Simulated scan of single mutants.
Amino acid sequence: MRPDAVTIWSDPEVRRRLSWYLSVMNEKRPPKYIIAKHVDAPGFDSPEELEEADERSLWRSHDTGAAEFRRLWSEVREGSASLKRAERPRVSLLHVKAELARRLASPCRLCERRCMIERLKGKIGACRVDGKAYVHSAFLHLGEEAPLVPSGTIFYGGCNFTCVYCQNYDVSQTSPRSGIPVDARMLAKIQEELARRGARNINHVGGDPTPSMHVIIESLLYLEENIPQLWNSNMYLTTEAMKILVDVIDIWLPDFKYGNNRCALRLSAVPRYFETVTRNLRIAAENGDMIIRHLVLPSHLECCTIPVLEWIARNLPKDKVIVNVMDQYRPEHLVARYPQRWREIARRPTWEELKAAHDKARKLGLFTKV
């Protein structure tokens, strides 16, 4: 255990900003996915009926159940409701979410690219994977932010970005399907083992977890551990995918990479970046605790770092969000092989750039102690 993973919780501001996550981690409250298992899915008498239902009926049941979830979650947070003796419905909100996530995966509408590929039929989507979830590794990660360590981290193959500087390019781009294909029951077992070994959370990452979201959601049907679910993502999801996630994710760990669409398209080949990610950050901030990561790119202080920090300060509740201004950038993948193509990022950020980024965050009043 890293010493700061213990001492960080002596900071009352960290405890306040991550209060829901802390209460689940300490098993004083159930994780959101367990709450979703206690919410009835109106209109269905058995899980088998979900497969035959049309998507509109599924969404109608989902949205009604989600409204009930928000009421129940509020009571659980306040301590006025307990699930210890509560009966579970035969068809829960989580059942409906699992079926909707499966539908969104084929034709695929999980991420904002909306490639519409039939991934469940074995076709390869824009994320470079088919309908299987490929687990490349699962372990207790000691290198995450202090409140998260040790983090039960699961690396999934595939990503909807094509970052030229990606540090996990084998998992995300070059060999995403070389991991072990797992079904929902196997994935639940992996999470159980991580929890048994002392993980503070289940950290879904990659690549990016979005292409594997349908398997992740279904796995929660077979999981009963009182452990927070963490979404570690580039946040390039559709609104439909976000609607499914918000009632099962306890803490968000989003990457906020770029301050404009031009840099996102050039360095990650992703269109409509800024409007998509900021939309989803707003949604996430209303539904669980959040630590936002921003990686400082060399030569991108004015176009990316400053606009990102200013947007967070203007648009998200500063008294709830924690920001991690990261200095770990190094030239990797294509930038390392062809530095002349991306000269401005073919180096580490300077001390002056990193200091300017941290100074800006402090000037904006952002809480960055993680």
Rank of each mutant, 00 (worst) to 15 (best):
K84I: 07
P209Y: 11
L120V: 01
V215E: 07
I312H: 06
R103S: 04
A36D: 00
N201Y: 12
G125E: 03
D208E: 15
R341K: 05
L221R: 12
L309G: 06
W342S: 05
E55D: 15
E310D: 13
N168R: 02
A241V: 08
P89L: 07
V14N: 11
S175K: 07
R266H: 10
R266E: 13
A67T: 15
L83Q: 08
R341M: 07
L187T: 09
S178K: 04
Q167R: 00
L281F: 15
I35R: 07
Y33V: 06
E218S: 15
G131P: 05
E55I: 15
I312F: 06
P228M: 09
L316P: 08
S178A: 07
V96A: 05
C163W: 01
D289L: 11
N168A: 02
N226E: 15
P31D: 04
R177A: 02
A67P: 11
D4V: 13
S23Q: 02
L58S: 04
V205L: 14
R337V: 05
V335H: 00
S106T: 14
G131F: 01
D170N: 09
S175P: 00
G179S: 03
I227D: 04
Y165I: 08
G259H: 12
Q229F: 08
Q173W: 03
K318C: 05
R266N: 09
K318Y: 02
E192N: 15
N261C: 11
E52S: 14
R56C: 09
V323F: 00
K28T: 02
R330T: 12
D359Y: 05
L142S: 05
I124P: 03
E55A: 15
F155G: 02
G259C: 13
G198P: 04
R109Q: 07
N287L: 13
H214F: 13
P339H: 01
D40Q: 08
V325P: 12
C159R: 03
Y329N: 05
K243A: 08
P150W: 06
D327T: 09
I180S: 08
P228D: 10
L221H: 12
I216N: 10
E218Q: 15
L22V: 00
T368R: 09
S92Q: 03
P228C: 11
P12L: 06
L253A: 10
T368S: 11
I190N: 11
V24I: 03
R103H: 05
F161G: 01
M290F: 04
A285N: 10
Y258G: 13
L297Y: 13
R119H: 00
G157H: 02
H136F: 02
R2M: 07
Y156W: 11
E218T: 15
S106M: 05
I306Q: 11
V215N: 07
L83F: 10
V205C: 10
